[in-house]
Design a protein around this nucleic acid. Structure first.
Lengths: 217, 217
DNA sequence: TTGAAAATAGAACGATCGTTCGTTAACTTA
DNA sequence: TAAGTTAACGAACGATCGTTCTATTTTCAA
C-alpha cells in the first residue's frame, strides 16, 4: 500500500468517527487535520474538495455496511435464518464500537433530507438497495415457505426497516435500556404474523427462531 | 403584541423553516437575517445567543407539536379512536406544509445524538414525554378493553414510534409513494395483534376504527 | 544513489461564523 | 407631544470555514 493510500485510509477512519458523532455537517477539514496532526492543506490534497471527502466517507461507510451486515447474512441459509441474521447484524451495526455516535449513514440520510446533490443521490441509491435487499430476502423466505404465501415482501421490508429505525432512536438517543429487547420482540412479532401458522399471539416467543423449514444449523 | 414579540415570532417561523430543511446545524444567523431583511445584530439582539435561538426554535416546534398532534387526539374518545387519531395526526405532522424539510424535532433529535447540552436535554425530555403519552393512551385502551389485557403498553409505544420513524424516512427521504399506506397497514396490524379477538390477519381493515367499546361518534 | 514523483507543510485568500459595541430609528406611553 | 424605552442598524472583532498557491520534505523506483 502506498503512503498516500495509507494516510488516506487513516483520514477516512478519523473522518468517519467524527461524522458519526457530529454528523457530516459537523465535519471540518481543520479539526480533522488537527486531530490527525496534519496540515489542512496536506489533508485537503488527498481529496481535492470537501464534497469529495464527504463522499469518500459515505462510500467507505457504505462498503463497510455491506461487508459486516449484508454479506455475512447472505452466507446464512436462505429464508428465516437469513432474515434473522440480517436483523441482528443491523442492530449490532447500529451500536458498533467503531461508530461512537451511531450509524453515520443513517445520520447522513436524515441530515440530507432536503439537500439535493450527488451525495444525496448516492445515499438514496444505497438506501433503496438496502430496502431491496430486505425485500428480496423476504421474498426468498416466502418462496421457501418460511413466510406465508400471503405476505407482502415490500410491506415486510418497510416494517423491518421501521423497527431498526425505532431501535436506533430508542437506543442511541433515549438510551432506553430495553430497546434491544423491544426491537427483538417487535421483529419476532413481524415474523410470526407473516407466518402461515395462524397462532394466537402467545406472549414470549423471542427465542423461537424457526419452527419448520430446512434450517441447517 | 409588542413589535418585539411580533418580529420575534416572524424570526422563529423563518428559523423553523430553515431548520426543517437544513437541520439546526445549517441554521446561521447571517442567512436568517438576510432572508428576513434584517441585520445580523438586530436579529441577534432578540435572543442573546445562538444557542438561545436554537432552543427557542425547538421549544416553539415542540409546543406546536403538542397543539396539533397530541391535544386534538386527546379530545377524541379514549381508547382505540384516540390511538388512531394520535397516529394519523403524527403522520400529518411529519408531512405538514409548514415543515418543508420534515419534522424539525425529529431532525434535531437525530442531529444531537451525541452532543450533550441543554438543548439535547430538552429534546430528550420531550421525546420521553411523547413516548409516555403513547404508552399512556395505550394503557387506557387496555383498561377499556380496546386492547388486549396481555398487551404491553411500552412495547406498543416502541412499535408505534418505530412505524412513525419508518414512515418519515420512507416518505421524506426515499419519497416512496406507498409509504403512508404501508405505515397505516403496519399500524392497523399493530392494533390487531394487540386485540383480544384472535382473528386471522385479514387483508384490508384500514378503515375499521373500533368494533367494540364505548365509542361516542 | 540519484532523480522524478508524490506527499506534506505553510502562508494567505475571501467568505462566513457568532458576537460585541455604540449609535440611530421606531415605537409606547404618560 | 415629549420623554423614555425598545428595536434595529452598521461596523468591526477574532475565529474558522474551504480553497489555492508555492515551497519543502518524503517516498519510491531505476
Amino acid at each position: 500500500m502506498n503512503k498516500g493510500e495509507q494516510t488516506k485510509a487513516t483520514i477516512l477512519e478519523a473522518a468517519t468517527n467524527i461524522a458519526s458523532k457530529e454528523g457530516l455537517g459537523g465535519l471540518s477539514i481543520g479539526t480533522l487535520a488537527k486531530k490527525l496532526g496534519l496540515s489542512k492543506s496536506g489533508l485537503f490534497a488527498h481529496f481535492g474538495s470537501k464534497d469529495a471527502l464527504l463522499m469518500a466517507v459515505t462510500e467507505a461507510a457504505s462498503q463497510r455496511f455491506i461487508a459486516v451486515v449484508i454479506r455475512p447474512a447472505f452466507q446464512e441459509p436462505a429464508g428465516r435464518p437469513r432474515l434473522e441474521r440480517l436483523f441482528e447484524n443491523w442492530l449490532d451495526w447500529s451500536e458498533s464500537r467503531e461508530f461512537p455516535g451511531g450509524c453515520p449513514i443513517m445520520a447522513a440520510t436524515l441530515e440530507l433530507d432536503d439537500r439535493p446533490g450527488p451525495l444525496r443521490d448516492y445515499l438514496l441509491s444505497q438506501q433503496r438497495k438496502w430496502l431491496g435487499t430486505i425485500g428480496q430476502a423476504a421474498k426468498i423466505a416466502i418462496g421457501m415457505g418460511h413466510l406465508a404465501e400471503s405476505s407482502d415482501s415490500e410491506q415486510f421490508a418497510f416494517e423491518f426497516n421501521a423497527i431498526g429505525f425505532g431501535y436506533h432512536f430508542s437506543n442511541r438517543f433515549l438510551r432506553e435500556p430495553h430497546a434491544r429487547q423491544q426491537a427483538r420482540t417487535a421483529f419476532q412479532s413481524l415474523l410470526a404474523r407473516n407466518s402461515d401458522t395462524a397462532k394466537p399471539p402467545a406472549p414470549d416467543q423471542s427465542n423461537i427462531a424457526c419452527e419448520k423449514g430446512n434450517r441447517k444449523r
